[in-house]
Amino acid sequence: MTEDDRRTGRDESEEERADRMWGELIQEVRVAQTGVQILFGFLLTVVFYPKYTTLSDANQHIYIVTVVLGACTTGALIGPVSLHRLVSGHRVKPQAVRLAARLTFLGLVLLLITMASALLLILRVATHDGYVPWLIAAVVAWYLTCWFGLPLWARHRHTTGTEDR
């Protein structure tokens, strides 16, 4: 058993591991991309509704920031597909998987910020109550818990001192 076998818990070559990790990563990206595409599509249409012109300057700025965040999120989550296509056949899959994983993580962070920004805009328009920032903080805390806290806790709790990088 090699050092790599002990680290991964599998008997696979670096290329086989990269192939497996690539497949897993693409499945994860598909889930996130669907949500981003729906949210971004909705955001792109908002400006064409008559109510948009009645929004305060602050709400219009929040909208613009949210659209730009949505575009950046879309780019980060589609990036791994382009990366794979451009490096395919050049024998750099393990490196491409690591880069694609970083792009995906960045996409998830941007998705969290985009969703918080969209929620801020919607709640500011729907209500002018002072509890809006508290609601958004609670939702962001929930996202942080579900998307990062629980996975990191599980990784810490269920690994035996080795880390799958």
Rank of each mutant, 00 (worst) to 15 (best):
D4G: 15
R7H: 11
G79R: 03
R155F: 11
G70D: 04
L108C: 13
D11V: 11
V65M: 07
T45R: 04
L144S: 07
L86K: 12
A101V: 10
R91M: 09
Q95N: 08
K51M: 14
Y131R: 14
I62G: 01
T2C: 04
V36C: 10
F105A: 10
I38Q: 03
L108S: 12
L83A: 02
A141W: 01
W134T: 15
I122Y: 11
I78P: 00
K51D: 12
L39A: 08
A100W: 00
E14M: 15
E15R: 15
F40Q: 06
S13W: 01
A126G: 14
C146R: 10
D5H: 09
L120F: 10
E24K: 07
I38F: 06
A71H: 07
S56M: 00
D19K: 12
V68I: 02
Y63C: 01
L77I: 06
P50Q: 04
R7D: 08
Q37F: 12
R85C: 07
H90Y: 13
V87P: 00
K51Y: 14
H156E: 10
R91L: 11
G70Y: 05
L112A: 14
V29C: 03
D11H: 12
H158T: 06
R91N: 13
C146E: 12
A101N: 10
V67H: 01
I113A: 09
T54P: 15
V65C: 09
F105M: 05
E28F: 12
T145V: 15
L99Y: 07
L86W: 13
T145N: 13
E14T: 14
R91C: 09
A141T: 01
I38E: 06
A100P: 03
L123M: 05
A154S: 11
L25G: 10
T2K: 05
V47Y: 14
A101F: 09
R10H: 11
F48A: 00
H61A: 05
L55F: 11
R20C: 02
V67N: 04
T66R: 02
C72L: 11
P151C: 06
H84P: 00
D164Q: 15
V36D: 10
V46M: 10
I122P: 11
F148Y: 00
W147C: 08
I113E: 03
V97N: 01
M1G: 12
D4K: 15
A137H: 03
A76D: 01
L39Y: 05
A71P: 08
I62H: 03
T34E: 12
P50V: 01
T53Y: 12
I113M: 07
L121R: 03
R17M: 13
